[in-house]
Amino acid sequence: MRSVLVTPERLPRLFRELAKFGTVGGAAYVVQLAATNLFWLALDAPPLAGQALGVLIATVVAFLGNRFWTFGHRARTGLAREYVLFFVFNAIGLGIQLACLGISVYALGFDGPLARNIAGNVVGVGAGSVFRFVSYKLWVFPPRPEERPAGAPDAAGTAASARRAEPS
């Protein structure tokens, strides 16, 4: 039985998508770090508010890069649909990031610029990024029907029709 998500013939495309996702994520990360630290240091924003505002700005950068470059070869399911799903999954990713920061600052008592950056911008971003990549790949920018393996679910969760008969 073939794997639904990763097969040897699909590895090169997966590696290209991961590389592009990482590049777009790196650019968005720089934007997020700059904005978050600006809110914290220059505007004296509370920890979670500064983090959330920085992530919101970076999310716009990430959407544009991922839609038009990382997953540009995938099916277009409508700008509004993609935009809404992208921001919903980013909100969940932000929740993961804020949970890491909140646990560090409020539960463990690690506060200060270095501790905030490690918890929110290293650990939180790392965990959130894994979630985001999988979410974008599966639901926001789904593969074109001809790219899905037989039996793989589409963006709506329904299985694609079989392309070839399974051996008995």
Results as ranks from 00 to 15, higher is better:
Arg2Glu: 05
Ser3His: 12
Ser3Lys: 10
Val4Leu: 15
Leu5Asn: 08
Val6Asn: 12
Thr7Ser: 14
Thr7Arg: 11
Leu11Glu: 02
Leu11Thr: 08
Leu14Pro: 03
Leu14Gly: 06
Phe15Glu: 08
Arg16Ala: 13
Glu17Phe: 01
Leu18Cys: 12
Ala19Asn: 06
Ala19Phe: 06
Phe21Ala: 07
Val24Trp: 03
Val24Phe: 04
Ala27Cys: 13
Val30Gly: 11
Val31Gln: 02
Leu33Ala: 13
Ala34Cys: 15
Ala34Asn: 11
Thr36Glu: 01
Trp40Pro: 09
Leu41Tyr: 08
Leu43His: 14
Ala45Tyr: 10
Pro47Leu: 04
Leu48Asn: 10
Ala49Met: 07
Ala49Ser: 09
Gln51Ser: 05
Leu53Gln: 11
Gly54Arg: 02
Gly54Ala: 04
Leu56Ala: 15
Leu56Tyr: 05
Ile57Val: 15
Ile57Cys: 12
Ile57Gln: 13
Ala58Arg: 09
Ala58Cys: 11
Val61Trp: 11
Val61Ile: 06
Val61Gly: 03
Ala62Glu: 01
Ala62Asp: 03
Phe63Trp: 09
Leu64Thr: 14
Gly65Lys: 03
Arg67Leu: 02
Phe68Leu: 10
Thr70Tyr: 05
Phe71Asp: 01
Phe71Pro: 00
Gly72Lys: 00
Arg74Val: 05
Arg76Met: 07
Arg76Lys: 09
Thr77Asp: 06
Leu79Arg: 11
Leu79Met: 14
Arg81Met: 07
Arg81Tyr: 09
Tyr83Met: 14
Val84Arg: 12
Val84Ser: 09
Leu85Ile: 04
Leu85Arg: 07
Phe86Gly: 02
Phe86Leu: 02
Val88Lys: 00
Val88Pro: 05
Val88Ser: 06
Leu94Glu: 02
Gly95Asn: 03
Leu98Lys: 03
Cys100Ala: 12
Leu101Ser: 06
Leu101Asn: 00
